[in-house]
C-alpha cells in the first residue's frame, strides 16, 4: 500500500466511525515508521474535518458525529505515546478542564463536548460528573488551563456555574481562565448574565466558539 492509500483509509475509518480500523491503521503507521505528524495531518484530521462537513450539511447526526470523534480519540491515544517518545510536539489549540458541576451527575452532554474538543486538537482534562467547584479551579491552576468548561443539566445545578465565576472573582482569578458554560437549561442570556466568556448550544459549536475565543 502506498502512503496516499493509507491516508485515505485513515480518513475513511474516521468518517465511518470504525474504531478498530482506525486503531489498526495508527499501529500500522508506527510499525512502518511513517512520519507521524503527516499521518495526523493528512490521514486522520481530514477524516474528522469531513465528518464536520457532513454534520453541517445535515447528513450526519449525533450518533455518527460522536462515534467518529471517539475513533479520532482512539487513534490519537495510540499515536500520542510515540510522538512523546520521539519528542515531536503536535499542535494543541489549548488546555481545557471540563466537568459537570456539583450536585449533578448527568454527564452525557459534557462527554459529547469533551469528545469533540479532543478530536479537534484540544488537550482535555475531564473531571467527570458531580465535581466540586473548588476542584475545577484547583485543576485549572495546576495545568495552567486556557478554559474551564462547566456543564449542568438541571435548572437547579446550573446555579453552580454562576457560583464558580463568583469564586474566580473572589480569588482574583477572573479573566485568567476563560469560562464556558453549557447544558440543557443554559442559554446565551444566562451565560452573559453570570459573566461567562462563552456559550455554545451544541458540541460542534463549542469547538468553533473556543477556537474563536483563543484567536481573539
Amino acid at each position: 500500500m502506498n502512503k496516499i492509500e493509507i491516508f485515505s483509509q485513515m480518513e475513511r475509518s474516521i468518517i465511518d466511525g470504525n474504531k478498530q480500523e482506525a486503531e489498526k491503521l495508527a499501529k500500522y503507521a508506527i510499525e512502518n515508521n511513517m512520519e507521524l505528524t503527516k499521518v495526523i495531518e493528512k490521514g486522520f484530521v481530514p477524516g474528522i474535518q469531513k465528518v464536520g462537513q457532513l454534520w453541517e450539511k445535515g447528513e450526519y447526526f449525533l450518533p455518527e458525529l460522536i462515534t467518529s470523534a471517539e475513533c479520532m480519540k482512539a487513534a490519537m491515544a495510540i499515536l500520542q505515546p510515540e510522538l512523546e517518545r520521539c519528542q515531536i510536539s503536535t499542535k494543541s489549540y489549548g488546555k481545557i478542564v471540563i466537568g459537570t458541576v456539583e450536585g449533578d451527575i448527568h454527564d452525557i452532554g459534557k462527554n459529547l463536548v469533551a469528545s469533540m474538543l479532543s478530536a479537534n486538537g484540544f488537550e482535555v482534562v475531564d473531571l467527570g460528573a458531580d465535581v466540586k467547584l473548588d476542584k475545577f479551579i484547583e485543576k485549572a491552576k495546576e495545568i495552567n488551563a486556557d478554559f474551564i468548561c462547566l456543564s449542568a443539566l438541571l435548572t437547579t445545578t446550573m446555579l453552580g456555574q454562576k457560583r464558580l465565576i463568583e469564586m474566580l472573582k473572589e480569588k482574583n482569578l477572573y479573566g485568567k481562565f476563560r469560562v464556558m458554560v453549557g447544558g440543557a437549561p443554559v442559554n446565551r442570556k444566562w451565560a452573559e448574565d453570570i459573566g461567562a466568556d462563552g456559550y455554545a448550544e451544541n458540541a460542534m459549536a463549542a469547538v468553533q466558539v473556543m477556537k474563536n475565543l483563543l484567536n481573539n
Binding site: G58, F61, L62, P63, G109, L112, A184, E201, N202, A203
Partner: peptide
C-alpha cells in the same frame, strides 16, 4: 423521559 433529538442534542 424524552425522545432525544439526534440533530440538535435536545430533549
Amino acid at each position: 423521559p424524552s425522545s432525544f433529538d439526534m440533530r440538535k442534542g435536545t430533549t
